[in-house]
Design a protein around this nucleic acid. Structure first.
Lengths: 237, 237
DNA sequence: GCCCTTAAAGTCATGTCAACCCTAAGTAGC
DNA sequence: GCTACTTAGGGTTGACATGACTTTAAGGGC
């Protein structure tokens, strides 16, 4: 910023997005984190899976660019969107085997939460596929490291901020909220204690309604406190 | 990353650094956060103060670029260095008054801690000046917002990670460590409680030595646990 | 009407943390 | 040598958060 000058021709800027959704695991049936990947159609790493993304359009905000990528690959709107990190190692865009000096790419990576309960649309043809986030195939470039970092951030952040709303409908029960936490953190949480600390966090508002037709005592419905913390929010790391 | 393509000519990439050091406040004499700014020598915002930085050199790692900026403006080595955020609003490189369509700049901003106790060198001539971080003049571009964000990150992070070592010599007393926290957080901390929780954090190693010549009971000296957490470390946000 | 299930509230032991007090170990002044 | 003063360093106490667990409430299935 201090000294503007045309960027060196060899450095280009891209925006990628790690997109998380919750779905049942194919084996266990338990809710698990999934994410969509895109099959590369050119070298390097042709045929391998990579994070969805693309070059930054010059009119776009960084977050808008990530959001557009999300829309393009999944057809969904982000329920939560946050910048993850800027990855800029000079070697990260090279292929592993041949050290051909391909263009250097700096990737600004976002991570997002989506709710795929609306009809799971197959967008972008066969080049997009969803995978279990903790059981991915080898990825192109340094994208495995990026996904690991995004997973760590998500798991850390859900413990101290109410981002689980990104996976939930507008109204939900405390059990549904707890199940989101359990799926993300891969743990079992005590229902009573979870309830206590969720209510103490002052981020939940009882709607007054109850979920009906449950074959047991009807649970109360809540919604998240409407207000400043919407999507596209900067984080406090 | 998924689709490489030459970047739009109008987007350039820069790396800036928010550099923090502790010095006595000119009025109160209390230790305070300072940071160096650079006077702009060209439009837009000519004559105003801005964060040190520059375009990304194509051989450089992002963190190396930030480190070089630090060396260039202060002559010091970073004791701690971490990526802050990537700022990329399309309008952020415009001047406020005239909306001339200058080049769009995406800035990847780092923040660093330095220890200026070595002779305070005046590097880069008169264009570099140090300011009290909480009492800055109006800055160019969105740099005021960036500094506020860096300050918030530093103050949040010092409460749960041992980054105060960036401001301390290799051996230090618990009182010196506490005074760093007090200066950064602008609060007064209970010496006894601070001691207890500092020792409980398992990041301090007693050297066995004591500071002598103090006109009171000689305090024990500590050093930080040597190991993985060096500078240029990714954070857990 | 009985049993099953989950909701929701309560109990209790443990740990953490802030506020506060007390003793230890040095120097300075007399 | 003795006292006063200063900071180091450790201990106590009460408020509060947390985890493990128990008890009661409110529905449906049979």
């Amino acid at each position: 910023m201090t000294i503007e000058s045309a960027i060196d021709q060899r450095v280009s800027l891209a925006v990628s997005t790690v997109i998380f959704a919750l779905r049942p695991h194919p084996d266990s049936g338990l809710m698990t984190l999934w994410l969509p990947l895109v099959r590369r159609i050119r070298e390097p790493y042709e045929g391998q899976w990579a994070l969805p993304g693309g070059p930054l359009e010059s009119e776009d905000d960084l977050a808008s660019s990530a959001s557009h990528t999300l829309q393009r690959t999944t057809g969904l709107e982000p329920r939560y969107l946050e910048q993850l990190y800027a990855f800029g190692n000079p070697e990260r865009s090279h292929a592993l085997a041949d050290h051909q000096p391909s263009d250097r790419v700096v990737s600004i990576v976002y991570w997002a939460l989506v709710r795929p309960d609306e009809v799971a649309r197959a967008v972008d043809g066969d080049n997009v596929e969803w995978f279990v986030a903790d059981d991915l195939p080898p990825l192109a470039f340094d994208h495995t490291e990026i996904v690991d970092y995004a997973l760590a951030r998500l798991r850390a952040k859900i413990t101290y901020t109410p981002i689980a709303h990104g996976f939930l409908p507008p109204e939900f029960t405390l059990t549904e909220l707890r199940e989101v936490h359990e799926a993300v953190l891969r743990t079992v949480l005590d229902p009573a204690n979870f309830r206590r600390q969720a209510l103490a966090s002052k981020t939940l508002i009882p709607t007054g309604n109850c979920l009906q037709g449950t074959s047991h005592r009807p649970p109360a419905l809540f919604r998240f406190e409407a207000g400043p913390p919407t999507s596209t929010t900067k984080e406090r790391r």
